[in-house]
Simulated assay, not measured.
Amino acid sequence: MKVVQPCILVVEDEAAQREVLSYNLEAEGYRVLQGESGDEGLLLARENVPDLIVLDWMLPEMSGIEVCRQVKSDTTTKAIPIIMLSARSEDVDKVRGLETGADDYVAKPYSVKELMARVKAQLRRTRPAALGAQLDFEDIVLNGETHKVTRAGVELKLGPTEYRLLSQLMEKPGRVWPREQLLDHVWGRDAFVDTRTVDVHVGRLRKALTAEGGSDPIRTIRGTGYAFG
C-alpha cells in the first residue's frame, strides 16, 4: 500500500548545506521542500503546512528565530515541530531558540546521522502512523505497521486512499484540515486531482466507519474541510 511520507521543509541559505540535508532526508524516504531565506521558508510553511521544519538560525533578511516565532504564533502552523540549526552553541543561544518555540536545537557542525535520529524522534510524536505506530480513537484502532483498521474489534475494508486519509485525520484529532492540505498530505503535491476528490473519499471513509452502526467521527467544517473527533 502506498503511503504518503512525511513532508519536511528545509530552510537554509547555504546551497551546499541545503542540498546535503535534502539528499539525506529524501534518502530516508521523506518528501522535502526547500527554502533559501526566512521569508520564503515562512511562505512555504503557511502554504504547505509540512510535518516538520529544519530551520537555520542565520538567514538573510528574516532570521530563523523570527521565522520560528511567526510559525509558532500562527494557528495554522503552530503545531509544526521545528529543529533549529545554528553555529551558535552557547547555552544562552539554545535557551533562546527553545523559548522562541523550537522543539529541538542542533549545533553546527552536526552529525547527519544524529540529525536524522532527531527528525525521526519529532515525527514519532506528530506522524506516528507513518512510522508504524498504532493509533486509537474510542473504538477505532489503526495499525500503522500492518495497515489494518478495526472498529469495535471488526476489521474495516478500506481502500488505500481511505486508509491514508484516516491515518492523516487520526494523527491529529480535532485539527481542522482544509481540503487543499489534505490533497497535499494524502495524495501528494504532484497528484493531478482537485478538492472534490477529497469529498468523494471522505464519503467512502464515512460509509466504511459507520457500516456497523457506529457514530460518524468525521466533522465537516463548512467552507473549509474536515476534522476528526
Results as ranks from 00 to 15, higher is better:
Lys2Asn: 04
Val3Asp: 10
Val10Asn: 04
Val10Thr: 08
Val10Asp: 02
Asp13Lys: 11
Asp13Thr: 08
Ala15His: 12
Glu19Gly: 00
Glu19Asp: 14
Ser22Glu: 10
Ser22Ala: 15
Ser22Asn: 04
Leu25Met: 13
Leu25Asn: 06
Glu26Met: 07
Tyr30Trp: 12
Tyr30His: 15
Leu33Gln: 12
Leu33Trp: 13
Gln34Asn: 12
Gly35Ile: 09
Leu44Ala: 06
Ala45Gly: 01
Ala45Val: 02
Asn48Gln: 15
Asn48Arg: 15
Val49Cys: 14
Val49His: 13
Val49Pro: 10
Ile53Lys: 10
Asp56Leu: 09
Met58His: 07
Pro60Thr: 12
Glu61Asn: 13
Ser63His: 13
Ile65Arg: 09
Val67Lys: 05
Cys68Pro: 02
Cys68Phe: 08
Cys68Ile: 02
Arg69Gly: 00
Lys72Val: 06
Lys72Ser: 03
Lys72Gly: 02
Asp74Met: 05
Asp74Ile: 07
Thr75Leu: 12
Thr76Lys: 04
Thr76Ile: 00
Ala79Thr: 14
Ile83Arg: 03
Ser86Trp: 13
Ala87Lys: 12
Asp91Ser: 12
Asp93Pro: 00
Lys94Gly: 02
Gly97Thr: 09
Leu98Trp: 07
Ala102Gly: 05
Ala102Pro: 05
Ala102Arg: 06
Tyr105Trp: 14
Val106Cys: 08
Lys108Ala: 13
Lys108Asn: 11
Lys108Ser: 12
Tyr110Trp: 14
Ser111Asp: 15
Val112Lys: 03
Lys113Glu: 11
Leu115Ser: 07
Met116His: 00
Ala117Tyr: 00
Ala117Thr: 06
Arg118Thr: 06
Arg118Cys: 05
Arg118Val: 03
Thr126Lys: 03
Thr126Phe: 04
Pro128Gln: 13
Pro128Cys: 14
Ala129Arg: 08
Ala129His: 04
Leu131Tyr: 10
Gly132Glu: 11
Gly132Asn: 12
Gln134Met: 08
Leu135Thr: 07
Leu135Phe: 08
Leu135Ala: 11
Leu135Ser: 12
Phe137Lys: 01
Phe137Met: 01
Asp139Phe: 01
Ile140Trp: 00
Leu142Met: 09
Leu156Phe: 04
Leu156Pro: 13
Pro160Thr: 13
Thr161Cys: 05
Arg164Ser: 12
Ser167Tyr: 00
Ser167Met: 12
Met170Phe: 05
Met170Tyr: 05
Pro173Lys: 02
Pro173Ser: 03
Gly174Thr: 09
Arg175Pro: 00
Trp177His: 08
Arg179Glu: 01
Gln181Trp: 12
Leu182Met: 06
Leu182Lys: 02
Asp184Met: 14
His185Ser: 11
Val186Glu: 02
Asp190Phe: 11
Phe192Val: 11
Thr195Asp: 06
Arg196Ala: 09
Thr197Arg: 15
Val198Phe: 05
Asp199Arg: 07
Val202Cys: 07
Leu205Ile: 06
Lys207Gln: 14
Glu212Gly: 05
Gly213Arg: 06
Asp216Ser: 03
Ile218Arg: 10
Ile218Cys: 09
Ile218Gln: 08
Ile221Asn: 02
Arg222Gln: 14
Gly225Leu: 09
Tyr226Cys: 03
